[in-house]
Amino acid sequence: MFFRKALLSDLEEMQKLFAETIQSVCKSDYNSEQIKVWVSGAKNKERWLDVINTQFIELAIIDNKIVGFGTLKNENYIDLLFIHKDFQRQAIADKIINKLEFEAKKNHSKFITSDVSITAKPFFEKKGYIVKAEQKNILKGVEIINYKMKKVLF
């Protein structure tokens, strides 16, 4: 496994990984309607182009395949952190989040935040993030719960 920055040519593979991970990994925490609405975000091309053009993105690659990615927005907000459904529990997320936190520290950020799914919450807690608020988001008329989490960087 190696890591590299994302390119525009990676966008389609990232969107596919995003959708497939949600559909597979998050199905025990969210119902089918919630997953359908959440996954529809993969089709928002403007949002994904903005991610590629404005965020720090770390890709994890195995055999020329993206197996995970994380993004840092505004130097201290983890916007996206997704690991391929077939590569869960292999410390990929741990390595990516460490790289995102290092980048935030490099930018002199005192803390890092993220809006975290029910599924990802235990992982973030193990990494030292604290729940600041439970959030009830309404997307296309469907309520999706996530958590505002924060970690102080030393």
Rank of each mutant, 00 (worst) to 15 (best):
V37S: 03
V39N: 00
A42Y: 01
A42D: 06
K45W: 12
R47M: 13
D50F: 11
I52T: 09
N53C: 11
N53D: 12
T54R: 09
Q55N: 15
F56C: 04
I57L: 03
L59W: 11
A60N: 03
A60M: 05
D63Q: 15
I66H: 02
V67N: 09
V67M: 11
G68C: 09
G68Q: 06
G68T: 06
G70Q: 10
T71K: 05
T71I: 00
K73Q: 15
N76H: 15
N76A: 13
D79F: 07
L80K: 03
L80Q: 07
I83H: 00
D86M: 13
F87H: 14
F87T: 08
Q88E: 07
Q88P: 00
R89E: 14
Q90G: 00
Q90E: 11
Q90A: 03
Q90Y: 08
A91S: 15
A91N: 15
A93K: 08
D94Q: 13
K99M: 12
K99Y: 04
L100A: 08
L100F: 02
E101G: 10
E103Q: 15
E103R: 12
E103P: 07
E103Y: 05
K105I: 04
H108T: 11
H108K: 14
S109H: 00
K110M: 12
K110G: 10
D115A: 05
T119Y: 13
T119K: 12
K121S: 06
P122T: 09
P122E: 10
P122S: 12
F123Y: 04
F123R: 02
K127V: 10
G128L: 00
Y129M: 06
K132A: 04
A133R: 06
A133N: 11
A133W: 02
E134Q: 12
E134W: 06
K136T: 04
N137H: 15
N137M: 15
N137W: 11
I138R: 01
V142Y: 01
E143F: 02
I145N: 00
N146A: 07
Y147D: 01
V152K: 14
